[in-house]
Each structure stands twice: as C-alpha cells, then as structure tokens.
Design a protein around this nucleic acid. Sequence first.
RNA 1: GGAAAGUUGGCAGAGUGGUCGAAUGCGGCGGUCUUGAAAACCGUUGUCUGUAACAGGACCGGGGGUUCGAAUCCCUCACUUUCCGCCA
Length: 423
Amino acid sequence: MLQISYIRENRNDVIKRLQVRNFGQLELVDEVILLDEDIRSTKIRSESIAAEGNAAAKQIGELMRQGKREEADAIKAKSGEYKEQLKVLNEQLGLLEEQFFQKIVQLPNLPYKDVAEGKTAEDNEIILEQGEKPVLPENALAHWELAAKYDIIDFELGVKVSGAGFPVYKGKGAKLQRALINFFLDQATENGYREVQVPILINGDSGFGTGQLPDKEGQMYYVTADDLYLIPTAEVPVTNMYRGEILKEEDFPIKNTAYTPCFRREAGSYGSHVRGLNRLHQFDKVELVQLVHPEKSYEVLEEMSSYVQSLLQKLQLPYRVLRLCGGDMGFASAMTYDMEVWSGAQQRWLEVSSVSNFETFQSNRLKARFKGQDGKMHLVHTLNGSALALPRIVACILEENQTDRGIKIPNILVPYTGFEWID
RNA sequence: GGAAAGUUGGCAGAGUGGUCGAAUGCGGCGGUCUUGAAAACCGUUGUCUGUAACAGGACCGGGGGUUCGAAUCCCUCACUUUCCGCCA
C-alpha cells in the first residue's frame, strides 16, 4: 500500500511512475487525494466537537465532586448536542475512510527509477546471459517424457489422488526433490539466512500484509471452514512474522529462509505451455526474505540476485537475468529481477526465480517499523526471492543432463541424492 | 466437540464509571559515582493523527451499545490459555 503522505505531496511523480507500469486507472490517484482531503477536514470538525464535549464532561465531573448538582445538570443538558453532531460526522468519516481504503489498496507500488516502461514480458530487459546452451541430441526428450521413461514423476497418479497439477514424485524423483531442498537450504544458511519452518495456512491479516489480499484473492486456495488460506509462497508467512513489530536498527539485515510447499489455483491457465512441471497447483520452493534498512535495500536486491545466480551456476544450468518492465512487475514490487533457465528440449526460457524489492509497500501494510537514529519511526524495506522453485529446476536438470546412459545428476547434488545417475 | 478463564504500553503486570494514556517492576535512553565496567542512586521513556510551533484528537483484542463521561458496565465477534474428550 502506498503512503498517502507521499501521494499527497508528489502527485505528479506518482502519476508518472504509475505510467511506467502502464497502470490503467490513473484517476484513482486524484480520487484518493480528494478523499484524503475530505477525510482530514471532516476529522478536524469532528475533533473540535469532541474537544468541546470532553471539556464539558470534565467540567461536570468537577462540579459533581464539589456537590454543585444543578450547575452540572445545566451543562449536561447542553452536552447532549455534541453527541448528536459527533455521531453524524463520524458516520460520514467512516464512510469516507472506507471509500479511501477501497481505492488506495488498488494502487500498485511505484516502480524504481531503473525500471523500464513497458506493457508485457516482451518489454523486459535482458541484463545478462550466462552459460552455454548445451547441444542436445536429435532425439532429446522433454522432461515429462523423461519423467515417464524413468518412472520418477507420475502425473496420472496425481490426477487420481488430487487432480491435474499435483504430481507424484517417485523413487529417485522424490529423492531429487529432497536433495534440492536440502541443497538450497544449506546454501542459504551458508549465506547468513536463518532457517525457519512456518505454517502453510495463513489468516486473512497475513494475506493482506504481503499484498495477496485483496489483489489476488482468487489465486489462493481457501479453507472456508476455518477461514484460512493455503500459502502461494513462503513469503507470506515468513514476512508476516514481522507484522506489527517495532525492530531495532542494529537487527538489520534480518534474513530468513524457509522451505515450504506452495499452492496456487492458477485459475485460467491451460495449454501446452503448462505441460509437465511447467506450471503446477502444488510445488516446492525455498524462499529468501529480508527486512533491511531503507538505504540498503537496492544493494541487498543485487546481493540476492547474485546469490540466486550462484545457485544456478553451481547446478551448471544456463540462465539469463531479466529486469522486469513496469507492466510485467508484480503488484507490490518496486523492482524485480527474474531468473530464467534455458530448456533445450522445450526450446524456451523457464522462470525459476523472481527477486523483488518491495520498499515500503508491504511494510506499510504490515506496520513493520524501526526506530531510526533520528528517534523517529520508519517503515522497513522488505525483499524476497525464490532460491529456488523446484519444478522447473527439476525439469531443466532432467532435460539438460539427458544422455544415452541416463540422466546425469549435477556433481554438487550427488552428496545430497546419494546417486549419480537416474537410469 | 464440551467447560472455564483471559486479551492493558518493548515485556511482565495493576487498574470495576470522572483527577487514567494508564500504578509498579523489568528493559531502553540520559546522568551521578568509577581509571573503565558492574552495582547503587537520580532523571527520562508508548503509538498514530494533527500544527509553523503549541493546542487538539484517537488508541487498553475488533465492532456496537449504555452514560454528560467507559480500560472499567452491557451486547457481539475474533483470538489465546487451561481442563475434559478425540487424535498424528
């Protein structure tokens, strides 16, 4: 959520930056500003009446104590009026505030200065490409074919148990999953992240805190009986650990990592591009979340980006890094890097990680603050990134490393899998 | 699922109608003392809103009500804890 004080004082800048996003409802900005003015003037009126009423009440108390019953009654009769006026004003105020809230939550975060204008993924900037795209044999198979050939991932079985998008990993397939999770967590630990295990069902307040609600309501699985949501990413529970917290400056940077399954309804997705592991309803992911001093957040974003890249290098996967254009960025993000791995068999790039700086957009909702050296409260900056999401990594490992003999496990993973070949 | 008790400032915990934004302790900050530190002692210490600054306003789990006046009384919802039941 944007800060109204910023919008109020920087109206033109806000409009300009929302245009970078190609945001379609620019009129919301002025509507929000007008409502804010309305709210504030109504508040002033209501508060001055409240002040009179408070003073009168105090006086009555004083007179009663002195036993001056009649004088007290006289004031009493008068102060009934305050109540009526206040009631009317406060009802207006409540209405205005409701409207204001409905509108301000529709405004996405403002893109950082480095973010390019653009509408779709076509306009994303390629920052770098790393690694050789391997030349696969003529008869190279896509990962879903390899999964069937070696009997390591069973999509049909998942359909029986749950439905499409819920695969069953079997034998070495399951072990590869576990190896990757452990590898990613160990790497994160080495890089100073604290490992946490968090709930994978969250309440509405948490969904709001990180921006999934109300923006992406329909994308999350919802447990009606208990009014809880299944997490779409560990970002939600991990970041929400700090909801309402007042942090100390010396605590920064706060670095947490968590492995969780993630659940996404992916309503409306279909077609060949969602085949196999490319898009699932349930998948595994190791997530990084940082809370940092506002001055440091872009430095930290670069750091997180290179860390994610180091994982891809260790797995010997060819990848590229994109800086998302305004139009392709998530609602809450100020700047996002996507990491994509080349799928030789599918002849396309697959997104395996997304690293974002949310600046104060999440912390303003979360009310995650710290007391600065100036003695004042400030909102922290939040960042997160996948490191990494498993399914597409698995897809690429299978595809890139296929040989006549079988699938060769990347060296760095062998201590984790306990085997070198899937054959 | 049944029953009971709770929800107050960074934490612990008092407060059952006005002088309560709230005792006290801990913690934090500043100081005295000390070569330095600890201890002790003294002072100070909530958030949001608002103002040029003051003033003013809001906040004792959320919402509503009673009252001139609510942390305190009533209603309602949520959550937490404990006991019983069930159970990995």
